Simulated assay, not measured.
Amino acid sequence: MDKEYKAKVFKSGNSLALRLPKELGLKEGSTMVLREEQSGYHFEPEDAPKKKLDVDKFWGKAKGMIHVPQPREDFEPRPSSLKAKP
């Protein structure tokens, strides 16, 4: 047998919000998808987004690799820098 819960609708800013009971086991900040069906409304948790690789944690940790800047060849040097060279 399905359990029945009551939820309260209230105004939040210019929107309406639905306060759900804690017994549902939803996590704070989770996103839900709400669908309107002929028999009423149906909601379910949104699929979790795929995690992206964060390279900030291991940037510069590769031993033996030295970053040597390469000269850029995709543009001409400025005329003022040509005059400065002897």
Results as ranks from 00 to 15, higher is better:
P49V: 06
V55N: 12
F43W: 04
K57E: 04
D56M: 08
E36T: 14
P45F: 01
K50P: 08
I66N: 03
I66P: 01
L53C: 08
F43E: 03
M65S: 06
G60V: 02
E36S: 15
L34T: 06
Q38R: 14
D47T: 07
L53T: 12
T31Q: 15
I66S: 02
K63R: 00
V33I: 14
M65V: 08
M32E: 13
E44W: 01
H42K: 09
F58I: 08
K52S: 11
D54F: 08
A62Y: 03
G60W: 00
Y41M: 04
W59H: 08
Q38D: 14
I66K: 04
K50W: 08
A62M: 05
Y41L: 10
Q70M: 15
Q38A: 14
K51C: 11
T31W: 15
Q38T: 12
P45A: 03
P45Q: 02
E36W: 12
M65E: 05
A62T: 04
Q38P: 11
K63E: 00
E37N: 13
K50H: 11
F58G: 06
F43M: 05
G40W: 03
D56N: 09
M32A: 14
M32Y: 13
E36D: 15
K63V: 00
F58R: 06
A62V: 06
P45V: 00
S39Y: 09
F58Q: 07
F43P: 03
M65D: 03
R35L: 15
Y41P: 05
E36I: 13
G64I: 01
H67Y: 06
T31L: 15
E36Y: 10
K52Y: 12
Q38E: 14
G64M: 02
V33G: 10
Y41H: 07
V55G: 13
D54Y: 09
K51F: 10
I66Y: 03
K63L: 00
W59Y: 07
D56R: 09
Y41V: 08
P45H: 01
G40Y: 03
H42C: 09
Y41S: 05
Q70P: 14
A48V: 13
A62Q: 06
L53F: 11
I66M: 01
G60R: 02
G60M: 01
E36P: 10
H67G: 05
K63N: 00
G40D: 07
P45M: 04
M65W: 07
Y41A: 03
K50Q: 08
E44D: 03
V55P: 14
M32F: 13
K50G: 11
K51E: 14
Y41G: 05
D47P: 07
S39W: 13
G60P: 01
R35F: 15
E44M: 01
H67E: 04
W59I: 09
M32T: 13
T31F: 15
K61P: 02
